[in-house]
Design a protein around this nucleic acid. Structure first.
Lengths: 150, 150
DNA sequence: GTTGAATACTAATTCAAA
DNA sequence: TTTGAATTAGTATTCAAC
């Protein structure tokens, strides 16, 4: 496996798992038949500028770099401002309706940004369906979106 | 020295110095006659949710947490939206005029967020004078403010 | 609740190898 | 240039004290 591929995988793992230690990466990769050592992960993390963030309550987790996230949020704000039509939340779903063609971009930006709350997104042409991990997190996401639109 | 005061100091240090290791904090505090150990700094970092970020080129530095930065920017946006009157940039200065009483909050938020460009801020009651490190950075700050107001 | 000293743990780097 | 094994450097936690 190539370095770039491994790093893409790391990016995915970080979004789908709570990674507390570099060894967690090693184990998750092992589960996919990819053998690497902690040393390699450390180098990847440096290269990708991942950071280990203290959780609000306790423990730590690895996360995407700050600047990237700031940029993503700004981009999302602008996209929504230009393309937003309506949104809605029910149970652990949030639906955003946008002008035709804009849904995939919005889905992608949400994926990049809010990954802790979001289980997955499905983008049509003008509609994004966001499946959250809980109703609570769906509410948070709704508030987050409303905040962006303010 | 109280914990809160020390942590406020850490917040300042992080903005004015390139902190690579927790021991750097210890030494900088020592220089101000404050004796703490690395263990305490580690606890502070966890509590304040500071993160160690890989630099683009090489090395690492401690930084404010992503969420905090996002929040600060958001807060600044709202404060400006509510309280903004005019702004102006000349040489390496930027002046923001706001409704009476709002300048200190704006100054503080700017300090927290954009510290790389900003040498210092002086807040009156309705005016913030921001001294940047160069004219170039003053221009960047102006653009940043205009972006926030869009 | 807060801290330092010692320690355990985790991450970064060195060094050799391919 | 990329990697693993071993090592060093750095960070988090424990434990005792206050």
């Amino acid at each position: 496996m190539r370095k770039v591929d491994r790093q893409r995988l790391l990016r995915n793992l970080i979004q789908t798992h709570e990674i507390e230690r570099q060894e967690d990466f090693v184990k998750l990769l092992q589960a996919e038949q990819i053998e690497v050592t902690q040393a390699t992960i450390s180098r990847d993390i440096k290269e990708m500028q991942l950071v280990k963030v203290p959780n609000a309550d306790e423990g730590y987790h690895y996360s995407l770099p700050l600047e990237k996230k700031l940029d993503v949020k700004e981009k999302l704000r602008r996209t929504l401002r230009d393309a937003y039509v309506t949104h809605n939340q029910q149970d652990y779903f949030v639906v955003i309706k946008a002008h035709p063609g804009n849904a995939p971009a919005i889905a992608s930006l949400l994926d990049q940004l809010q990954s802790e709350d979001i289980f997955g997104t499905i983008g049509g042409d003008d509609t994004v369906l966001i499946i959250c991990k809980s109703e609570e997190q769906a509410k948070q996401l709704r508030v987050f979106i409303e905040d962006l639109l303010k």
